[in-house]
């Protein structure tokens, strides 16, 4: 937009009635110009860098912040995140556990975790492969292997859903070689935190993904052999 004459009185122009006012305003702001002339603008970059570094130093400097490693927990201690509350109760080595949906070949056994879990989110969560408990709980020495089967402890519902705010005791089962673990071993269980993603464009809705280790639970393994009463016995009509 073309500047009209009236827009910039400082530019002078033909002397007229505005002249007196102009002089007054120039005088009134002269100190400002004088001050701004003295500002060492060439140092701005340096000063800004200094301020930035000082601020960074207050938070621990430019070195990569050390992420807090996974928390160490014992069996029975609860781990909380935005999605789930998880308490690993015990670990059991058993000959077979078809109630959870796993089948064993000769030379294999089942390592089962009994876990208390609660959905802390606002939507129901499936526990099948890739979701909630299956992607949140892993064995430290086979971190990429999701449980082969998962069922409710009380009525052995397969791959049960976690309703918001409704606690559940679940049994997670991994098929292992029979010499992988032994009675009394300290099992290290990794609990992952996941982030909530909101779909856009072709995907829609929200989902939890990107599991990252947040806690490690140490739990002793109990070998119950073929499993009499001590193992996660889950039968129809079972009561808590």
């Amino acid at each position: 937009m073309a500047a009209s004459q009236g827009d910039e009185p400082q530019q002078g122009g033909p002397r007229g009635p505005g002249e007196a006012r102009q002089t007054v305003s120039t005088r009134r702001f002269r100190w400002l110009r004088a001050a701004s002339d003295r500002v060492p603008t060439k140092w701005f970059a340096g000063i800004a860098t200094g301020v930035f570094l000082a601020a960074t130093a207050a938070f621990g400097g430019l070195a990569t912040a050390t992420e807090a490693g996974p928390v160490e927990l014992e069996a029975g201690e609860e781990h909380l995140n935005e999605q789930l509350a998880i308490t690993v109760q015990r670990a059991v080595l058993i000959d077979e556990l078809s109630e959870t949906g796993v089948t064993v070949e000769p030379g294999q056994r089942v390592l089962a975790l009994v876990v208390d879990a609660e959905n802390r989110w606002t939507e129901p969560l499936p526990t099948r492969r890739g979701y909630s408990l299956s992607s949140s709980i892993a064995l430290a020495d086979r971190p990429a292997e999701e449980p082969g089967g998962i069922a409710r402890f009380d009525d052995s519902t397969w791959s049960p859903w976690l309703q918001p705010g409704v606690p559940m005791t679940a049994v997670l089962a991994w098929v292992v070689d029979d010499d992988d673990y032994a009675d009394g071993d300290e099992l290290r269980v990794v609990l992952n935190d996941e982030s909530l993603y909101t779909g856009s464009f072709v995907t829609s809705g929200q989902s939890w993904d990107d599991p990252r280790p947040a806690a490690i639970v140490t739990v002793p393994i109990a070998d119950v052999g073929a499993g009499a009463d001590a193992e996660p016995q889950a039968e129809d009509g079972g009561e808590r």
Binding site: T122, E123, P124, R152, T157, P160, W161, Q163, P164, D236
Partner: peptide
């Protein structure tokens, strides 16, 4: 109450 529940798959 701001939360969503799914019909239970537990009853046979």
């Amino acid at each position: 109450g701001g939360r969503s529940y799914r019909a239970s798959e537990r009853p046979p």
